[in-house]
Simulated assay, not measured.
Amino acid sequence: MKAIQYKEYGKSDVIKYVEVPTPLIKSENEILIQIKAAGVNPIDMKIRMGLMKTIRPVEMPYIPGGEASGVIVAVGEAVSEFKVGDEVIALTKKHTYAQYVTATEDFVVLKPETLSFEEAAAVGVTIGTAQSVLFTEGQLKKGQKVLIQGGGGAVGGVMVQMAKSAGAYVIATASGKGVDLAKDLGADEVIDYKSQNVSEIIKDVDLVADTAGGESQSELFKVLKQGGALLSIVAPPSQELAAQYGVRAGFVVSDISAKTLQNGIDLINDGQFRTVVSKTFRLEDAATAQDFLSAGGVNGKVVLIVE
């Protein structure tokens, strides 16, 4: 099969388009999927550059990628929820920049019929991350106020929709085209962070969901009410500032599985969720796709088309 692979950590020029053996089912709970599209995520670049090697080392040569959509072509003897021919979303955490991948049953869900393969490849990691931050860790409730830092991005845009569907009052920060996108996705207020200081405008927030990180993170403590929470998927927030403001703060490592996707999949099936694909690239152009995402300012998800 054709796949993207690299043999050493480095910049995008380590990425090669190669021929490798098609993976085989090795356990009775595995599924073999012919990939139609694969999502590109910031963690893919962090792994490639070696920034994750102490906590998430990989064996070289390595096929990157962690989510995909496609069609099941074989199942293990113990697989009961899926059959050959099913169109699915797979959350493998590795090896999806390829024509085929294996996954265990717990990390596969049926693809909503309303989504194309490209759209389906864009929702797995984003929905799982949003679910983990907003509800598993953030305990967001109906009527509460949430600030989503980076509401025009791939994860932030999903957070806007899922928080709104839960009955929260949603405030998002964004810039450029992301301002209109966050509004279209349902945010009650959108702050253009390039021209406005969110900490001077917004107060008494129950939960801050930080998808952007950077120097502005410390300012986000000022918008929280006593007892609120600041949760980040980018960098651990300051515990000293958390104590100073009387709030909870933490770095969230998302639990991404079929179970954490169910809430978002239900919203898609009910027509209450909009999937935003920013740009698609061919599998062989994966290096260009990663550089495009790394450059920043991307509204929505970057997806690889696999043929």
Rank of each mutant, 00 (worst) to 15 (best):
4 I>W: 09
9 Y>V: 05
11 K>W: 06
17 Y>F: 14
21 P>A: 13
24 L>T: 14
28 E>F: 14
29 N>V: 13
33 I>Y: 00
33 I>S: 00
34 Q>C: 07
45 M>D: 13
51 L>H: 02
55 I>N: 10
62 Y>T: 08
66 G>T: 11
79 V>E: 05
97 Y>E: 13
99 Q>V: 01
102 T>D: 09
103 A>Y: 01
104 T>H: 09
105 E>S: 14
108 V>G: 01
110 L>M: 08
111 K>C: 06
117 F>N: 14
123 V>K: 00
125 V>C: 05
125 V>N: 07
126 T>Y: 01
137 E>N: 15
138 G>Y: 12
139 Q>P: 00
139 Q>S: 14
150 G>Q: 12
154 A>N: 03
159 M>T: 06
160 V>C: 03
163 A>C: 09
167 G>R: 13
170 V>R: 10
172 A>M: 09
190 V>P: 09
190 V>E: 10
191 I>P: 02
204 D>C: 02
207 L>F: 07
213 G>D: 00
213 G>W: 00
215 E>T: 06
216 S>L: 11
221 F>N: 07
223 V>T: 11
225 K>A: 06
227 G>N: 13
235 A>F: 04
240 E>W: 04
240 E>V: 13
247 V>I: 11
251 F>E: 03
280 T>P: 12
281 F>G: 12
283 L>H: 07
286 A>F: 10
288 T>M: 13
290 Q>H: 15
293 L>C: 12
